[in-house]
Design a protein around this nucleic acid. Sequence first.
DNA 1: CTATGTGAATGATTTCACAGCT
DNA 2: AGCTGTGAAATCATTCACATAG
Lengths: 206, 206
Amino acid sequence: MPKIAESTVRRLSLYLRFLEDFEAQGMDTVSSEALASRGSTTSAQVRKDLSFFGSFGKRGLGYSVPELVARLRDILGLERTYRVAVIGAGKMGSALVQYRGFQQRGFQIAAVYDSDPAKTGRTWNGLRVRPDDRIEDDLRHDPVDIAIIVTPAESAQGVADRLVGAGVRAILNFAPVQLNVPDTVVVKNVNMALELEALSYALRNQ
Amino acid sequence: MPKIAESTVRRLSLYLRFLEDFEAQGMDTVSSEALASRGSTTSAQVRKDLSFFGSFGKRGLGYSVPELVARLRDILGLERTYRVAVIGAGKMGSALVQYRGFQQRGFQIAAVYDSDPAKTGRTWNGLRVRPDDRIEDDLRHDPVDIAIIVTPAESAQGVADRLVGAGVRAILNFAPVQLNVPDTVVVKNVNMALELEALSYALRNQ
DNA sequence: CTATGTGAATGATTTCACAGCT
DNA sequence: AGCTGTGAAATCATTCACATAG
């Protein structure tokens, strides 16, 4: 498998969403053009993205919607569910635990941690907030696939180090810091203030 | 001004954060190499990014930290504050309103809206949640620079249309849909489920 | 006839490497 | 001597355009 660009992977996720909508509407084939217009890209882009993984379409016809859904789920690794730990039980952590979109797409929140004793012991969504010094023990018995860091900036690197030590190999980081991890660990960042700054730049330049 | 790549703008935001840290530590000059290692990029990348906007450094010495902070703030349009409206007073909307990082960086939440009468009237952070049919009137008197959409997927496009009608020219969209807006309006998306899918893909391929 | 799959062409971004200041 | 600023080269991503299959 050639190395696939990040931008390609993100578009594949989008295509999958669109296809699920098409499927819900009972469509059974779709053209690269239809997918493209839905995601404001081009049909050539769609075909190229898919072509890295095989040829799933029928010339003259398009793609079978259910088949392409299955292929994309497989490509993205979404045929299984993932266990997720959330570290940080502030407002944002609470919102993430409640967020339906994760569960729906196979990401199960298995545990929530916080270092603040005032927060631990509360129950959210049937899930008790655990003291963060339990991370190591808990993950030894019940590993998670992905950790979401929603701590304040100051604590994020320390938490990341401990997670990596406990065997976590994928991190979604909401703290506004650049995490330092070994390159066996994947990190994606969601940096909301940075998105606003990108809007600020865009506004300033028409 | 040449057109600047999105990736460049995002790095400039990151450099600004690092510089603010350096400033807080009392450093007064910094090399492209120091900035680069902090953000896991290369010194050539840092110099190239900055060079699109002028030459701010001193050969043999590096960059003046306070001066570069000022230049980056200016480039990114952060010398002013921005008025922001949040649409959607669910868990996530509430978390965003409370989030310190926005205020700190000059993004002031001016109003929160929701269509659910059960939510309107509540007060968060000294800000009353307003019925969303007030958007048009409110924005006529007190325009905002940026709107953050945190509604369910189904309502997001309708809300976006109304915001655009009310003169909003920048949108940060947390709803997992692709918004359709005129090209006079800038949209940035934060799609958390999609980030998890990108992690899923990365995990599956080592 | 239609729409895919894909090399080849174009365009964009990153990296190199070094001349030019301080 | 040290580090910036920047053309030129290399790499990466997107678009074109068409032969090919249904």
